[in-house]
Nucleic acid binder design. Structure first.
Lengths: 206, 206
DNA sequence: TGTACATCAGTGAACGCGCGTTCACTGATGTAC
DNA sequence: TGTACATCAGTGAACGCGCGTTCACTGATGTAC
C-alpha cells in the first residue's frame, strides 16, 4: 500500500471536516465536489476513492457536524454547575457569533430544510442525529421527570433552531438581535417556570 | 398589444403562484426555469418577458407565499374569539397537514436557510416580510403591552418555524409527531403563563 | 365597418458553463524474495 | 540488507447532462386609417 497505514483515513477525515464547514456555509447543494476537494488540498478525481457519491459525503459531513455540536455542548456543560448548563448552552447557541458563523455552527438551521428533502437514506441519518440531540438536551433540562423533560427539550431545540433561522434571515439588523434575545429569554423562562422547586433567581426580563 | 390588457399580468401571476408552490416543495434551487414555466403551461423561452432573472422570480414567489400565509392567518383569526386566535393559528401551523404539504405552507422553514444565503437584495425582501409577520403575530398575543407582546410574538414564531423544521427532518416518524405536540404546548403555555389574568382553561398536557 | 400594419407574449433551438462522475495513468510506498 | 514487483491514493482530461440565459421568429390581437 502506498502511504502509511492511516494516511487514507486521515485524508478522508480531512475532506469530511472541511466539507462540513463549507456545506453549512453554502448549503447542501451550494458547493461542488471539485471545490470541496480543493478545500482539502486535493483534485476532484480522487473523490471516488473516498466516497460512493457526493450524497455520501453530505451524509458524513452532516453527521460529523452534529457530533461536533454535541461534543461542544458536553464540554460547555462540564464547565458549569448543573443548574447553569442549559443557560450556558442557550446563550452560546443564540449568540451573534453563532449567527455569523454558520460554517462552525449547528447543522439544523443551516442544512435542515435541504436535508429534509433528500433521499430517505439521508433523511434517516439526519433524523437519527436529531434524536441523539434531543436525548442530550433532555439531560440539561432540570427539575422535571424524564418524560416531561424530553418534551421540554424538544421545545427548547425547536426554539433555538427557529430563532437562529430567523436571526439569519434578518441578517445582522436590529430585528436579528431582537430575535436572539427573545429566543434566549423564552427558552430560559419556559424552563424556569416548570413545576417542582424553582431556583430563587428571577429571569432577566419579562 | 397582443392578448387582452390583463393577459400578461394574469400569466405573470400564474407563474409566480405555481413557482411559489414548487419552490417551497423542492427548495430555492431545487427546480429549474424550464420546469417552472411548464407548471404554468408555458415554454421556458418566454420567461424573460416576465422576469429579469430566475432570482427575481424567487423573490416574487417567496413574497407571494408569505402574503398568502399572513392572509391565511388573518382569515383563521377572524373566525374565532380573540383569546382563541393564537391557539387556532398554532394548531393549524404545527399540524401534520402543514408538515406534509410544504408547497402550500410557510416559507420560513421551507426556504429560510437558502434565502438567508442569497444576495442582499433577496435577503432584504425576505427580512421585510419576516418583520410584517412579526407585526401580525404581535396582534395575536393577548394580555401584554405592545413591547412585551412583540417579544413573545418573535419567540412564538421561532418555536413554530423551528418545530416545523425539526418535524420535517424527522419525517413522519413518532419523533415528528412528538415535536409537533411539544411545539404547540410550549407556545401556548408560554403565552398562557404571562402576567395579567389567565383564562381558566388549563393546558392539555405538561 | 373593413383592411393593413404594428406590437409583443410566447416558441423552441442554441449558447456557454459548471456540475457529478468516469477513466487511463502516475509514482511513492509496502511487500516478497 | 537490497532489489523487483504490486498496490492504490491521487491526478487531470474527458464524459454526458441540465442549467440559466439569449435570440430569431411566430402569429393573434390592438390600433390606425
Amino acid at each position: 500500500m502506498r502511504y502509511s497505514r492511516e494516511h487514507k483515513q486521515e485524508t478522508h477525515d480531512r475532506i469530511v471536516k472541511k466539507a462540513s464547514v463549507r456545506l453549512r456555509e453554502k448549503g447542501a447543494h451550494g458547493i461542488g465536489v471539485a471545490d470541496l476537494m480543493k478545500e482539502a488540498g486535493l483534485t476532484h478525481g480522487g473523490f471516488y476513492a473516498h466516497f460512493d457519491s457526493r450524497e455520501a459525503l453530505v451524509i458524513e459531513a452532516f453527521a460529523y457536524a452534529m457530533d461536533r455540536s454535541m461534543e461542544h455542548w458536553r464540554k460547555q456543560s462540564d464547565q458549569v454547575a448543573p443548574e447553569k448548563q442549559l443557560t450556558q448552552i442557550v446563550e452560546t447557541y443564540l449568540s451573534t457569533l453563532h449567527r455569523d458563523n454558520p460554517g462552525h455552527g449547528c447543522s439544523i438551521p443551516a442544512l435542515g430544510a435541504e436535508i429534509a428533502r433528500e433521499s430517505p437514506k439521508t433523511r434517516k441519518a439526519f433524523a437519527g442525529k436529531l434524536d441523539e440531540m434531543v436525548e442530550m438536551m433532555t439531560d440539561f433540562i432540570p427539575n422535571l421527570p424524564r418524560k416531561a423533560a424530553r418534551k421540554q427539550a424538544i421545545a427548547t431545540l425547536a426554539t433555538m433552531a427557529g430563532a437562529m433561522l430567523l436571526a439569519r434571515i434578518a441578517g445582522s439588523s436590529e430585528l436579528s438581535d431582537e430575535v436572539l434575545k427573545a429566543g434566549k429569554d423564552s427558552v430560559l423562562e419556559g424552563v424556569k417556570r416548570e413545576p417542582v422547586k424553582v431556583a430563587p433567581k428571577k429571569p432577566k426580563q419579562v
